[in-house]
């Protein structure tokens, strides 16, 4: 009777124990649609924004910045209305984050003009002398790698036109990143 004499049975039971919570709280909600937001409300990403988002991921901005506003009064006073499921509905991967070494960025696209971001990304200390954010001046000199732009749109399933792809010509990585930042807070159709 004693299962600690039967390693295979033991392992199968362990898998079973592991799968109960796994399925009920994580994988069944995926498929039965408990967590399905209304994607029709979302404005799809443009190729330039996708490239910018990939640079955000490459540089690991999410290690210091969250993108999610909690429904708490002090938080909405600082960052705006609580985040909804729809706002991140088409985001693969999500970029909600878990640490705020810097402020939340969920709505930063509505807070500053693009020019502010160009300056801030180049030299954060020129705006906030006490900031600890790294300077990303080199992004302005790096030409955007366009090789996968179309493939990315296809994999992500966002609609695009050849003109959208043409926009990338001559753009720098900084242009793409700022385009992405300017989108934050403007995900939903009016």
């Amino acid at each position: 009777m004693s299962i600690d004499k039967k390693p295979v049975t033991f392992m199968l039971l362990a898998v079973l124990a592991i799968m109960v919570g796994t399925l009920l709280t994580t994988f069944i909600p995926l498929f039965v649609g408990t967590v399905v937001p209304d994607t029709d409300k979302v404005i799809p990403y443009k190729p330039l924004e996708v490239e910018g988002r990939d640079i955000y991921i490459r540089e690991g901005c999410n290690n210091c910045h969250s993108q999610i506003v909690r429904p708490l009064p002090f938080e909405t006073a600082r960052y705006g209305p609580p985040s909804t499921l729809a706002e991140s509905a088409i985001d693969r991967p999500h970029l909600w984050g878990s640490k705020r070494t810097g402020p939340d960025l969920a709505r930063v696209g509505r807070k500053y003009p693009a020019a502010w971001h160009y300056q801030h990304m180049k030299n954060p200390q020129s705006i906030y002398p006490q900031s600890n954010m790294p300077a990303y001046a080199w992004l302005a000199d790096a030409k955007l790698d366009r090789r996968y732009a179309e493939k990315k749109m296809k994999v992500l399933g966002y609609p695009y036109t050849t003109d959208d792809i043409k926009v990338l010509e001559g753009k720098t990585e900084m242009d793409a990143l700022v385009a992405y930042l300017m989108r934050l807070g403007r995900e939903l159709k009016p």
């Binding site: 937001p37 509905a89 985001d91 999500h94 990315k152 992500l156």
Partner: peptide, 26 residues
């Protein structure tokens, strides 16, 4: 479970899950 992704190139992929689902799996 967490690493299911669709490759774009040898060095780049996108998570198979989106938004809140991706966060929940993560």
């Amino acid at each position: 479970g967490n690493n299911i992704a669709v490759p774009v190139s040898l060095f780049k992929s996108y998570s198979a899950y989106a938004g809140a689902n991706d966060a929940n799996v993560q």
